[in-house]
Each structure stands twice: as structure tokens, then as C-alpha cells.
Amino acid sequence: MFDLRDLYLQVIVDHNKAPRNFGKLARFNHEADGYNPLCGDKLHVYLDINDAGIIEDVSFEGEGCAISVASASLMTEAVKGTPLSGFQKKFETFQHMVTADLEETPDEEKLGKLAVLAGVREFPSRIKCAVLCWHTLKSAVTDSHVVAKTE
């Protein structure tokens, strides 16, 4: 049977306790808010995209459950230094992983550390916790100025 430890893997617990890239960036040129009204999760992401279209730096602030904080923390690590075109691919790969059939093994080569979040598939009500940060980052990239939601 699926175990809670498959959702709350040590990596996730660690990232929740000590989120990476947490806080406001000293210099940024994009930002966005994300909000999940169901559980009250709030996120704000900051982005510094350089002239070559590469994510030079990224950070987040906010409060939320362990899944949403860990996911945001892992996301910042995964996208830092990548070109925007790469971000769009990562977004889709991540979205696919958390909504894919349970039988499908996550593509660890493409996903890297993000694969630790594959466990949320077992917990349908928690998927949106994992994807909120990605939607927020996407709003920041596109400067949409609407609060990102996952619905």
C-alpha cells in the first residue's frame, strides 16, 4: 500500500523546513502572486530574467503546506539558470508528472529532483498544492498580473 512516507519524502520535509531561494530578490524584473483559496496557500515569486532570456535568479515568499513550500523550493532550484524556453518545457513535464497515471514512472532524467513530488498523484486533493508555484512562476514570466490559481 501507498505509504505516507512516499508523499512526505525526506527531501520534501527538508525543503519545507529550510526552503531554498526563500525571500525577496535584491534585483528582479518580474513577479507574481499565487493563491490557493481552498487551503489559504499564498505565494509570491520574484524573477530576474536577463537580456538573453535566461532566468538568472528566482526566489519565493509565502506560506503554505509542506507540499507547496517544498515544491516552490525545488522549483526555484530547477529553473535557476535555464532559458525561458526550457522553463515552459519543465512546466509541462512537471504538470504531466503530477497528473499522470499511477503506473507511469516519472522521467527522472528530465525531471531531476522534481521527481520526488510524483507521490502527490496518490493524493488528488494535494496536486494543486504542488503546482501552485509553477502557475505563479508562469504568471511572473508572462507578466500576467492576475493572481495565479490552479483551477
Binding site: 505516507l4 508523499l7 512526505y8 481552498l38 487551503c39 489559504g40 496557500d41 503554505g64 503546506c65 509542506a66 507540499i67 493524493f123 486533493s125 494535494r126 498544492c129
Partner: peptide, 22 residues
């Protein structure tokens, strides 16, 4: 140490149904 939302999920796996939220 535990966000209510995580708590809801964890206790559910122990058979306990509670509400987490606003």
C-alpha cells in the same frame, strides 16, 4: 510543526477524517 493541510492528509491515512482549512 505541521501545516493543517498536511495534517489533514496524514491523519486521513490513519482513518481519521477531520477538516483542514478556513
Amino acid at each position: 510543526s505541521v501545516h493543517p493541510h498536511d495534517l489533514g492528509t496524514i491523519v486521513d491515512r490513519e482513518g481519521v477524517a477531520i477538516r483542514a482549512g478556513h
